[in-house]
């Protein structure tokens, strides 16, 4: 009986130590290739390579999804990678992913419409499937939604549950420059929309060099 109690105690201790908490991070980067933001694709890839890839640790996941006219499609997933537990293998994986991202940046893909919600829904599904300790969605876009006729994107009530959404490098359009309030209202509307669907938070970042620290903070 005493041995059984001791074994039970040890098991509880181990479970308590190891815990159900996960410390890995899954990052889903949505890159807009439509209209005015198509020129920013290379810049977005450079941000990914410079600020995110080097700071990812073994066990972390990176998903890159293209935002185009019909974003809610599996073909829009440009890259999906979970880093190996060994740092040397993880480095090799990072290099391979960087080459794929370079190819994506060089590719001449452009779309007429901007299906941001579709890409976000697809990204949320992938993030939820990975089930990492912290989940982040990065959106490289001008944040102006343009859906093709007939497309519906009804988001679930808890669509972005447990996800931190960051709008990166949001490009200001001509009307935004003319009236900054238009830009601010658009961003505020997205914030309200995202947080209403269970997102942990919403943030806009203009300077990508702050991203590594922020990602480390929410890890």
């Amino acid at each position: 009986m005493r041995w059984r109690n001791a074994a039970l105690g040890m098991a509880l201790l181990l479970v308590g130590c190891n815990g159900a908490q996960r410390y890995d991070q899954a990052i889903c980067a949505l890159i807009d290739v439509s209209g005015t933001y198509a020129d920013e694709k290379r810049e977005a890839v450079a941000h990914l390579k410079r600020e995110i890839l080097p700071n990812m640790v073994p066990g972390d996941t990176l998903i890159v999804i293209r935002i185009d006219s019909e974003s809610y499609e599996k073909e829009n997933v440009e890259a999906l990678l979970t880093l190996d537990a060994r740092p040397s293998h993880a480095n090799a994986q990072k290099l391979a992913l960087a080459r794929r991202l370079d190819a994506f940046a060089e590719g001449a893909v452009a779309s007429e419409f901007t299906d941001i919600p579709g890409a976000m829904m697809l990204g949320a599904e992938y993030l939820s499937e990975v089930g990492a300790g912290s989940r982040v969605m990065l959106i490289f876009s001008d944040m102006r939604e343009e859906l093709p006729k007939g497309s519906l994107r009804p988001m679930g009530e808890r669509e972005f549950e447990g996800i931190q959404v960051i709008a990166m490098n949001v490009k200001q359009l001509t009307e935004d420059t003319a009236n900054p309030d238009v830009f601010r209202r658009r961003i505020a509307a997205w914030e309200e929309r995202v947080t209403a669907r269970g997102a942990l938070g919403w943030r806009t970042l203009m300077d990508s060099s702050k991203l590594p620290d922020y990602l480390a903070q929410i890890r």
């Binding site: 130590c17 972390d60 537990a85």
Partner: peptide, 13 residues
């Protein structure tokens, strides 16, 4: 040591 043991795993953080 991260090359020898699972680098992503944690014990109590």
């Amino acid at each position: 040591m991260s090359e020898l043991v699972p680098a992503g795993a944690r014990i109590g953080g």
